[in-house]
Structures are given as structure tokens and as C-alpha cells.
Design a protein around this nucleic acid. Structure first.
Lengths: 197, 197
DNA sequence: TTGACATAAATACAGATGTATGATATAATA
DNA sequence: TATTATATCATACATCTGTATTTATGTCAA
């Protein structure tokens, strides 16, 4: 990436700040106003920033400046409970959302859960943690999955041996689960934990 | 919050989608175009959404629609190393950023680190996890802190007894650290873990 | 039935906004 | 020295954009 001049960096920084503060890109005149420069001058800087690859632009669209690799976030619904219909139906009854970077969620179908219990503590999954689950066709042995066992949802380690699914808690004080009625809902892709106080 | 009509919800949903896709709010005409409705009609819907509290608006500003409690994110620098100057100087040499909800970071001074080693595994902090650290004046016993011990940074449990600081690993195979040369850099406030594959 | 509200359209206007053009000046570079 | 990139300004223009106004229809509750 080509070097920026002092002025160009300042303009880029301002755009960044403006975007952070207002959640929208500034207009050419808003930038010009801030630096007390003419419109044409800012046009020049924007052109340079564009040719050097620091900005992109939607032509003739107001506030059409954009960052090449802008961080984008998708709201992922935090569900109170998981049931058989999850992923089949639209998620409408979400109590809350976590915002996850789209380069994590990509185009996957996701939902989030609050972790309950200590059965996965040795895997670093604690009560109160928020986990993001993605629908995956094929979980592999050792993956952390959310499964429905006889209608009850659980976060467990997935294992398949001789065509039979085993769900293990990493906390060994809990028994291994195996049942004919196991449905894998999805695979763990992300975890966030907030330390309060 | 007042109930929305079918149409109003659809308009609100479209604004949401548009924002997610384009990272900017739509203009009145862009909404009208999508629904093949007149400008005036959309104006009405926007007014209703506003009076019912689902939208706010910056007057006479293009793309001035906004969500009342829009999630806002602060870039937090992921540092390669921590040293004595952290927090004193501006963080400029960041290799990467994590974006954290501002209602978590609030007005605190934060930086982020990649966790190395297994000394805090029993506390659910694993190698590769990204932790967000906030400068706090007063850590309490049992808090997870980032500390500098003789110039080396470490993530440990903080304890103070009889005026002396003890840094404990939750993995008991590591010894308790105590030294006259301990500087508490900050307190753990957030953790994110990405499951790859 | 009257009023409040939702839905929808057409039109007009002022100001916002991106863009184009032409000009000047300086500094660095080939 | 000629050229290129940078920096700046002034001005003009087409169109984008928010806003105001007016009209019309249908529904529902008081």
C-alpha cells in the first residue's frame, strides 16, 4: 500500500473519526468544512486516497465513501431456548443480540446462546458465556456442538463412532450421552465472555 | 414500545437490511423505490416509526435516519507486546484491531492481547483467545489482571495480602509470583474466542 | 357519525451533494 | 529542465435528497 502524505492521512483520520462518531460517512463539504478547505481541495485528497487504495467510492451516491475492508457486523440473535425448529423458522423472539464480525459469520446461519452449567468448563466454556452457533452439515469428532437430546438442548463435545453419536461433557463428572434421539443443531464458532465488576 | 403495523415493520426491516448490506442508511427515495411506493407514503411510515420510537432522524441531513440504540463499536488495538509505557503513550503500532461494543468499553482505556500459554486454562482463558484489558485503578482479590513482572507481561489472578501483591496462575502447576517489581497494567473485561475449522 | 390513524399518491421547492472544469503554486523527480 | 504529484481555490451544474402541501380512501374506536 502506497504511503500517504500528511494531509491525506489527516483527511483519512477525520473520515474515520466522523464515521465512528456518526455511523455515517461525511459528505465532501462536511470534510471541507472541518479542514476549512475548498471542496475541490478535498476532492483531490479523496481521489488520491482512492487511487492509493485507502478508500473506495460509490459514484454519485451521497455519503458514498467507503473503506476497502470496513469491519461489518451482523446481529446474531441470542435465543432463550433452542428447539427442533431452530434454523427452520425465522428467529423473531430474540431477547437480545450480539454483533459479530461478518468475516466470522460469513454466510453461515447463526444464533447465540447463554451458557448454563459447568459441564464444559474444562474446555473453557463457562456459565454466562455467550456462544455463537453455526449450522454446519458435518461436525467432526471433538467439535463443540449444540445438540438436542430428547428435546433438551445441550452444549457438548461431538463424537461419532461406528455410526453412533456420543456427546461428551469435558467435565468428566457428567456421563457420556448417547441416544437414538440426538439432533445436532450446530457447531460452536465463537465465544464471548464479559467480566463484570 | 408501541406496536408496529405490518407495513411499518416491513419498512423498518428493509432499513435494517439496507444498513447491514451497505453500511449506510437508505434515502427516502431508495426506500420508496424498493417498495414501489411514493415518496409521500414512505414519509408517512418514517414519521410513524419515529413517533413510535423505532427511528430517530437528523433533520435535513442526507441519509439521516438512525436507530435509537444503534450498536456502536470501538476499535481496540491488539498489541503484540505489553511494556511499561502501555497506556502512557498512544497505541500506534497495532497489528490488528478487535471491535468491542461501546457499552462494554464505556470510557475506559483499553487494549487487547492474544493469550499465550496455558497458565490460566482453569479460568477458561486459553491460548489464542483475545482478551480485552482495561486500565483500572484498583484491582480486587481474585480479579484477572495483566501485570508486568520484571518487564515481562503476564495474565494472572491478582491477590494482595498485607500490602504485598501475589500473582497466581489458575493452573496450579505454575508457581505463585511475588516480586517487588510488579506493575499492574489493567484488568480483564472481555474475552473472545474464535473456533476455526 | 365523527375523529384518529394508516395507507397512498402527486407535485413542488429549497437546499444538499457529487462532479467537472479551469486556474495557480510548490516541491520532488527523472 | 520538463514532468509529475501535491495542494489549493473558485465556480458552475445536474441531480440527489429532505421536506411541505394537498388530496384521497379505508378502518376502527368513541
Amino acid at each position: 500500500m502506497k504511503e500517504l502524505t500528511e494531509k491525506q492521512r489527516k483527511v483519512l483520520n477525520f473520515i474515520n473519526e466522523f464515521y465512528a462518531d456518526n455511523a455515517m460517512m461525511p459528505t465532501v463539504r462536511e470534510i471541507a468544512g472541518h479542514f476549512k478547505l475548498s471542496i475541490g481541495s478535498i476532492q483531490q485528497h479523496l481521489n488520491s486516497l482512492q487511487t492509493k487504495g485507502y478508500l473506495t467510492k460509490r459514484d454519485s451516491i451521497s455519503r458514498g465513501i467507503d473503506f476497502p475492508n470496513r469491519q461489518n457486523f451482523t446481529p446474531v440473535a441470542v435465543l432463550g431456548s433452542v428447539h427442533a425448529g431452530t434454523f427452520l423458522e425465522q428467529i423473531e423472539d430474540a431477547s437480545d443480540y450480539v454483533y459479530i464480525n461478518t468475516n466470522v459469520t460469513r454466510n453461515r446461519k447463526c444464533f447465540a446462546l447463554k451458557v448454563k452449567g459447568d459441564s464444559m468448563e474444562p474446555s473453557g466454556i463457562f456459565e454466562g458465556d455467550t456462544i455463537v452457533v453455526s449450522k454446519e452439515d458435518k461436525p467432526y469428532n471433538g467439535d463443540v456442538v449444540v445438540a438436542l437430546v430428547d428435546g433438551e438442548s445441550a452444549v457438548k463435545l461431538f463424537y461419532k463412532e461406528n455410526g453412533r453419536i456420543f456427546l461428551k461433557s469435558s467435565n468428566t463428572k457428567y456421563p457420556v450421552i448417547t441416544s437414538d434421539n440426538i439432533e445436532i443443531v450446530g457447531k460452536l464458532i465463537y465465544l464471548v465472555r464479559e467480566y463484570k465488576g
